[in-house]
Amino acid sequence: MKFGYFSALLFCTVLLLSGCGARETQETVESLPPKPAAFTRKSKIEDVKHDPVFGSYGRLLFPVEDAYYSGDTLEDLGLTYYSHIDPDETLEIVNTLRERAADGQTIFYDIYTDEEKAADPAKEDTGLFFFKGVPGEKFAICNAGGAFAYVGAMQDSFPHALELSQKGYNAFALIYRPGAQTACEDLARAIRFIFDHADELEVDTDCYSLWGGSAGARMAAWLGSYGAEAFGGGDLPRPGAVIMQYTGLSEYSESDPPTYACVGDRDGIANWRVMQARLEAMQKAGIDTEFHVYSGLGHGFGLGTGTSAEGWINDAVAFWEQQMNR
């Protein structure tokens, strides 16, 4: 009889305590700040740029030079010199960055000090967007094109950086000052910044890679050919691989890093034969190269989703990984 009485008492006590715990948990959940609603294809570009979660750097997600992009919403985004812009990729990029920023992660780094920016206000419009991968993995810097007039990151570097991060690599997308010289100086500074903050960023600096499309590809190639020191970045190792898209560069040096390149056969800006000739000459000089030309494609196809170039980034990553294993 006693046993039954105490069992009932214990059961009631557990129920009482469980009820209190449930109420406390519910109150805690209700007190948390609401998770920001995801952007949609119909979200206005201006709203994305000025979303409080991005702080002062949201304006750098899209070209600072407004004349080089068109469209009011994410699905209507157009960028000068670019084709095959995929609204779903754009949406995934901004939502990924927004979610990470809302979660307290650092997704943007200044590469210049306040003093340097005060001395040269153009440096205000520079920095690195960080697409973090696996801590301790190698890093890549992706450089968008834009004819050195603007930075077309939403098509030519953000998609690549996001894809690389999803493969586990730590990827950065550089927002640089227009102009060939200043762009290369900013890339050299970005490499220096990452090396100086490698522990904080949790990146492996060995056999890093430089990626670029159009003007961004020239930046990657020039830093590979001449090194960061030639552009004020100091004495740093050269990249383990350079990944280039659609730029008709001819010059190279015998100390160039291994180079992967791809282009469309209907590119009216970067002739595929010029690119092929350069890589063949580099190969004869003993530099490891890989070249692809895709049918029916013009300039600025980015990841090439839905085109004959779709999946090219997997070949490029495999090429980079080959250099890691040498």
Score class of each variant (00 low, 15 high):
223 L>F: 08
256 D>M: 11
223 L>V: 15
279 L>Q: 05
301 F>R: 02
301 F>I: 06
271 N>S: 15
315 D>Y: 14
313 I>F: 14
250 S>Y: 11
275 M>D: 04
222 W>K: 14
312 W>P: 02
219 M>C: 15
293 V>H: 07
288 D>G: 13
308 S>D: 13
272 W>E: 11
268 G>Y: 08
255 S>K: 10
310 E>D: 11
273 R>I: 10
271 N>A: 13
318 A>K: 12
261 A>T: 00
307 T>V: 00
292 H>M: 04
299 H>L: 12
236 L>A: 05
316 A>K: 02
265 D>N: 15
305 T>F: 15
288 D>C: 12
242 V>E: 04
269 I>S: 06
277 A>T: 11
311 G>E: 13
300 G>H: 09
270 A>H: 03
254 E>T: 10
224 G>P: 03
239 P>F: 01
246 Y>V: 04
317 V>C: 04
313 I>E: 11
315 D>K: 15
243 I>A: 05
298 G>S: 14
247 T>D: 14
316 A>R: 12
301 F>L: 10
311 G>K: 14
276 Q>W: 00
226 Y>A: 12
308 S>A: 15
307 T>F: 03
233 G>D: 03
250 S>T: 14
271 N>I: 10
248 G>H: 04
227 G>L: 07
295 S>M: 13
319 F>S: 04
267 D>N: 10
216 G>N: 05
